[in-house]
Design a protein around this nucleic acid. Structure first.
Length: 677
RNA sequence: GUCCCCGUAGCUCAGUUGGAUAGAGCGUCUGCCUUCUAAGCAGAGGGUCGCAGGUUCGAGUCCUGCCGGGGACGCCA
């Protein structure tokens, strides 16, 4: 993608944002209630800074729906004092006339003021769900934010590995959450189409002719990568040639003809590396032949990634490779060199850094122990000759190799600068595995040093690395290797689809098209759900040899459970076929504890969406949906909805609200509800 | 060695940012399909919140130190 296209797409994304349905967050029933309570307590106490806390409680267990306390007052004089001097007037204030239509009962219990909501308030709140329809859950809470989310980010000419898959799912849903919360969202796929590419260019030139005709372009790229890694291993191998692994030996015979000894191998390998570096230099310099060739190779890989995105149904608006940013990165380095913020790390600077390390060691500083000192010296030695940005704490970030070429840090800095210019964001969030924490920590510090972002409280752009745990092998608990990762998830999607299809294919009530559609929705849904339901920092287990183990894990994960609840609600409404009445037209009846619980669960959804977006943690919403489904599944078995009686329409309205709320929220989580399951 | 993540029921995880008697799902056991889809419902059992100190009226939650599991520590990305 070129800059001009990116600008046009950006403008389209902004226009789409403005066209989105959006409900004022403060107009939802619960935020409105919180504001009312806060206002009343501040007025009563003559203060302004009180932010009363409203916690949901179990009516059957504690007698109320909400427990209210005021942390600010509680901290002032401790619990005993709070109960004696504050609780009584809080009870008074909340029992006032103005709250009569909202609170049916106000009662002090220890440090809490427990309130029970009126049935009228609860029933009326259903209209926020029913009238907003597809817009329920959406709000303007983050309207002032403009968020760039960097996710998926695969490497061209390599397999999509497990980390990219989690990044893709989590990043995509995080974008949905921010969008639902009212932010401008720019979905960016930062593909690595530059680093290590010299090998690919040179390898393709050398060995393309030796590949068989049935290999797809992408197969060839993967093969080149395999050859390169194998040669790398062989060249670094300590013993003589015949002690190499058979597959590495075979690669040498096939691709480095005449390398009969270890020394010959090293020479030939070095020649290959030098030629590769040369090819990369030409590419960086903009050599038209190399650039055209490179573009062709990148296109092969990107087409392959697209297959995976299609299978998952995920969209990423801006596919911008490192190549898009590298000029900006180089310009940044030049400017930094001119201003002195970046320096050529000379022998003299190295000696000075060593002296500081020695001094810290002599002072027995906690920051510099014996092994740390040794590592620091080694690193100083390595960095001599490169261009670095000095960071606080005697750290350095290398931004240009000693041979003058850029590295990923250069391009990542360029990316920040360019994204600022292009998107003017308030946040850039990187959804990348935890193994890159150190890199991002240093990158963000360097961005501050360069003045790309303002540091401290007045910061104008929040850079955040949102990391997640790995897919790990269910048996060993170890990180899945790159090769296993992608093929596993492909297989998993495929076998999950077959698994779900098997449940319906023999049923005459199902057409083939219905079976396929439903099976795919359930398969994608369960993979996604399994990834999202836990806090993302933990590892997700996957079984590498027995997919049925992983499949059952998905069955148990609860995705189907939530979808089932929504389907049942929809099915009941289908059967009803009549007109729903308005909540205000319903006669007064006493709501059951389950109904109260359920209605309050629905009303929390808009807040949970905002919380999940703000915390960068989709599981906040997913778990709430699981809770909601639990209550509804229990509800319709105990309270037959379509049974004739006074409460039939009440139950129908609750069912309609559940259906709508779950569908909307699940869609934000990238889970579609089939018509029936 | 240094830094980061994790440690809560047999297993997988919550625990609303320091507050009520620590909660779910799965698994186990026991019931429920002439009544809107049993991918469901009801019930039982299951706990030294890794260990040891500390702060606090109050700690699973905050601080310090240990123990165990995983990860990072490249002029790769």
């Amino acid at each position: 993608m070129r800059e001009r296209e990116a600008v046009a797409l950006r403008d389209r994304v902004i226009a789409d944002t403005h066209a989105r349905p959006r409900q004022a967050f403060a107009a939802y029933p619960l935020p409105k209630l919180r504001a009312l309570v806060a206002e009343a307590l501040n007025r009563e106490s003559g203060q302004t800074g009180l932010r009363p806390q409203l916690d949901f409680t179990d009516r059957q267990k504690l007698g109320g729906d909400l427990a209210i306390k005021v942390p600010e007052l509680l901290k002032q004089g401790g619990a005993a004092n709070y109960i004696k001097t504050h609780v009584p007037w809080i009870v008074q204030a909340l029992s006032a006339e103005g709250f009569a239509s909202i609170f049916a009962h106000v009662e002090a219990k220890g440090m809490y003021v427990n309130v029970r909501l009126t049935d009228r308030f609860l029933l009326q709140s259903l209209s926020s769900v029913l009238e907003l329809e597809r817009a329920f859950g959406f709000s303007d809470a983050e309207a002032a934010r403009s968020v760039v989310v960097d996710y998926s980010s695969p490497n061209v000419a390599k397999q999509l590995h497990a980390g990219h898959i989690r990044s893709t799912i989590i990043g995509h849903v995080l974008c949905n959450l921010h969008a639902a919360a009212g932010a401008r969202v720019f979905r960016v796929n930062h593909i690595n189409d530059f680093g290590g590419f010299g090998f690919t260019l040179e390898g393709y030139r050398r060995w393309n002719d030796t590949f068989t005709a049935d290999m797809s372009p992408n197969d060839k790229l993967l093969k080149l990568y395999a050859i390169r890694r194998s040669l790398e291993r062989s060249a670094a191998h300590e013993g003589p040639l015949h002690t190499l692994a058979a597959e590495d030996k075979q690669i040498i015979d096939e691709y480095l003809e005449g390398a009969g000894s270890k020394d010959e191998l090293r020479v030939k390998y070095e020649t290959f590396v030098t030629a590769s570096d040369g090819a990369f230099e030409q590419l960086e310099a903009g050599d038209p032949k190399q650039v055209a060739f490179w573009q062709e190779l990148v296109a092969f890989s990107v087409a392959e990634f697209q297959k995976f995105y299609d299978a998952l149904g995920v969209t990423i608006d801006f596919t911008l490779g490192e190549s898009f940013y590298f000029k900006a990165g180089n310009e940044l380095v030049e400017a930094a060199l001119a201003s002195g913020k970046a320096v050529l790390f000379t022998k003299e600077l190295g000696a000075a850094a060593k002296a500081r390390a020695d001094q810290l060691l002599a002072e027995k500083s906690k920051l510099m122990t014996e092994p740390l000192h040794a590592a620091a010296l080694l690193q100083i030695e390595k960095d001599i000759g490169a261009v670095v940005i000095p960071l606080p704490n005697d750290e350095r970030l290398v931004v240009r190799r000693s041979d003058g070429r850029s590295i990923y840090a250069t391009r990542d800095l360029g990316a920040i600068a360019l994204r600022r210019r292009l998107f003017n964001p308030t946040d850039i969030t990187y959804v990348v595995g935890q193994e890159q924490q150190l890199h991002f920590e240093r990158l963000f510090k360097a961005a501050e040093v360069l003045g790309l972002v303002k540091s401290g409280d007045g910061h104008d752009l929040a850079l955040e690395h949102l990391f997640f745990g790995f897919y790990v092998d269910a048996k060993t608990g170890k990180k899945l290797s790159s090769r296993e990762g992608a093929s596993n998830v492909y297989l998993l999607l495929q076998s999950a689809t077959e698994h779900f299809a098997r449940k319906y294919q023999d049923d005459p009530a199902w057409t083939k098209a219905d079976v396929d559609e439903t099976a795919k929705q359930l398969a994608v849904g369960s993979v996604v759900f399994n990834d999202l339901k836990k806090d993302m920092k933990g590892a997700v287990e996957i079984s590498s040899d027995d997919l049925s183990v992983t499949m059952t894990a998905f069955e148990k994960s609860g995705g189907a459970y939530v979808v089932y609840a929504a389907c049942r609600a929809r099915s009941i409404l289908r059967k009803f076929q009549g007109e729903l009445e308005k909540p205000e037209a319903l006669p007064d009846v006493e709501l059951t504890a389950e109904e109260v619980d359920l209605i309050l669960k629905l009303q929390q959804i808009p807040e949970k969406i905002v919380d999940a977006a703000d915390q960068g943690n989709p599981s906040v919403l997913v778990r709430h949906l699981l809770d909601t489904a639990t209550v509804y599944n229990s509800y319709y078995t105990h309270s037959p909805v379509l049974k004739d009686g006074d409460v039939r329409m009440h139950r129908l309205l609750i069912t309609a609200a559940v259906c709508r709320a779950l569908e909307n929220a699940l869609r934000i989580c990238h889970i579609e509800c089939p018509q029936k399951i």
